[in-house]
């Protein structure tokens, strides 16, 4: 096989801007769990800026293993009606592992999913108007002893990645894009 020409440098990121709302979110984008599944957990919270104000034009994406630990995902998160083009949503049995949710006018998002198999966390990406390059973070659910990332963080930083149980299989996870004078900034991740 002949050597390929070296690839040019990476294409730079640019902000998602204010008008992604009619293009990227899709109906039931945050509902990864099949409707009515008894193991469903809810992860919800608010996205805040450095003034402590909610961010109403952020977009959250989630990626996770299936409950059995498999990481191959499945197509169909945006399953479409070939007649009208409308989004039908996931078909139920196939666990796609992917979700996408725009924050509400009050900066709130909610994910209904099944517990990830093999790891104690969901992977999140945050996009927003004003954010020139998206941010990776993780939602840790409950005990995560021995996790290499959590183990590397000071307690106050570590706490920003651990969701707060609210009972009834509901977990609260806020994203703070910047320290607001009171609340610690969320830990964001680099993968190189």
């Amino acid at each position: 096989m002949s050597a390929e020409a070296p690839a040019p440098g990476p294409t730079p990121s640019q902000t998602v801007g204010p008008f992604f709302g009619y293009a990227l979110p899709f109906p039931k984008g945050g509902d990864l769990a099949p409707a009515g599944h008894p193991d469903t957990i809810t992860v919800h919270g608010w996205v805040y800026d450095g003034a402590g104000q909610p961010v109403p034009d952020a977009l959250i994406e989630v990626w996770q293993p299936a409950p059995d630990g498999s990481r191959h995902g499945a197509p169909g998160s945006l399953r479409r009606d070939p007649v009208t083009g409308a989004v039908l949503g996931r078909d139920g049995p196939a666990f796609t592992g992917f979700g996408r949710i725009a924050t509400d006018a009050d900066g709130h998002y909610a994910i209904r999913t099944l517990p990830p198999g093999g790891v104690p966390y969901l992977s999140l990406i945050v996009f927003a108007r004003g954010l020139l390059h998206h941010l990776h973070t993780r939602v840790y659910l409950g005990d995560a002893e021995g996790d290499p990332l959590l183990g590397s963080l000071a307690p106050e930083r570590r706490a920003t990645l651990v969701a707060t149980p609210e009972g009834g299989r509901v977990h609260r996870f806020d994203v703070r894009l910047q320290y607001d004078g009171v609340h610690e900034e969320t830990v964001f991740l680099a993968f190189d």
């Binding site: 108007r129 004003g130 954010l131 991740l189 993968f191 190189d192």
Partner: peptide
């Protein structure tokens, strides 16, 4: 719009490099 919407702390290395 970037002024209040960017983290001031350095990103934390994760994944294979970490």
């Amino acid at each position: 719009s970037s002024v209040l919407r960017h983290p001031k702390r350095p990103l934390v290395a994760a994944g294979a490099a970490a």
